[in-house]
Computed example of a mutant assay.
Amino acid sequence: MGLQKPGFKFRERLNLKTTNEYNYLGQSECLVINGVNDAQKFQKLTEAMDIVQICKEEQEQAFAMLAVVLWLGNISFQVIDKENLLEASADEALTSAARLMGFAPDELMQAVSTHRIRVGRDNICKKLTLQQAIDARNALAKFIYASLFDWLVEQINKSLEGGKKHIGRRIALSSFV
């Protein structure tokens, strides 16, 4: 058996690809920064998470949610009728994101390509147009990313409290807005 890079199994479990294969990352057209060692930076990040007492399981869950965001950005849509209504393509991006979130691919497909409307006691499921579906997909990714950020700030604040009553050290979310 050959040597594997550190974190290989983790990357494999998240089904991670290279940075240029993710639509959200490619938008900046800057995937590499000269003089920056990404592997070293990642190691420092995990060490910092250890310091603020985020257990390995929660770290892996956080990285899985970041992978979900990346995969969501790669979900594509296909038009299914002449009214420009569509559904998400059942491809690697959809199946990877769904698996990481604990959903069946068809559940995620429905979530990003339809809108549910409650009329009286009935639920009506309406197909979205291409722009509406793109907006829904991006809104879901943004919600997951923002929720992860809020959770991370909360974990850091808990660590700063150190089991004592409020001692004045805290990260304020309003400073990031």
Rank of each mutant, 00 (worst) to 15 (best):
I54E: 01
G7Y: 06
G7W: 00
S174I: 10
E29R: 13
R99D: 11
L31C: 05
E60V: 06
A111P: 01
R11F: 03
V177M: 13
L108W: 02
W151D: 14
G168T: 09
Q43Y: 08
I144N: 05
I75F: 01
A62L: 14
L100C: 09
A172Q: 08
C125E: 12
E83H: 13
K142Y: 06
L173Y: 08
N23D: 03
K158G: 00
G168D: 04
L14Y: 02
V119C: 09
M101H: 07
S113A: 15
S113Y: 12
G35V: 02
D81N: 15
A98E: 04
Q78F: 09
A93Y: 05
I54W: 09
E87D: 12
K164N: 13
G162F: 13
L72A: 04
R137W: 03
N15D: 10
V52P: 08
L128G: 00
D122Q: 15
R137V: 05
Q155I: 08
R137G: 05
Q40Y: 05
V177C: 14
L72M: 12
F103V: 06
V36R: 15
V112E: 11
A97T: 02
Q59C: 03
A136H: 04
I54P: 02
Q53K: 11
C55I: 09
R121A: 14
K126A: 12
A48W: 01
M109W: 04
S174Y: 10
L25T: 06
N37I: 05
R121D: 14
G120C: 12
R170T: 12
V177R: 11
E60Y: 11
V69P: 01
P105G: 08
Q61I: 01
M49C: 11
D106N: 14
V36D: 09
R137Y: 05
R170E: 15
I80D: 03
I117V: 15
G73L: 01
L66E: 04
A146K: 15
F103D: 11
M65C: 11
V112A: 02
A67S: 08
L3G: 04
K44I: 14
V32T: 13
L160C: 04
E21C: 02
G162M: 07
V119W: 06
N157P: 04
L45Y: 11
K127L: 04
Q43T: 03
F77R: 12
A93D: 09
E29F: 10
Q27G: 01
R121W: 08
I144G: 03
F103S: 05
T18P: 00
D81V: 07
E47G: 02
K126W: 06
E58C: 07
K41L: 15
D150N: 12
S28C: 10
D91S: 13
V36K: 14
M49R: 10
E83F: 12
S175Q: 12
A146I: 00
N15W: 00
L152I: 10
F63Y: 13
K127D: 00
K164T: 10
I167M: 11
G162W: 13
L94D: 05
H115I: 05
V52F: 08
N15S: 06
Y145C: 14
F42D: 02
L3H: 01
L25G: 04
I117C: 15
M101Y: 13
D50K: 13
C55N: 12
E47Q: 08
K126G: 11
E83G: 05
I134P: 10
I33K: 10
R118S: 11
G102F: 05
G73C: 10
L148A: 08
M101I: 07
L173M: 13
A48R: 11
K126R: 10
F63M: 12
I144C: 09
F149E: 03
S28Q: 07
N84F: 07
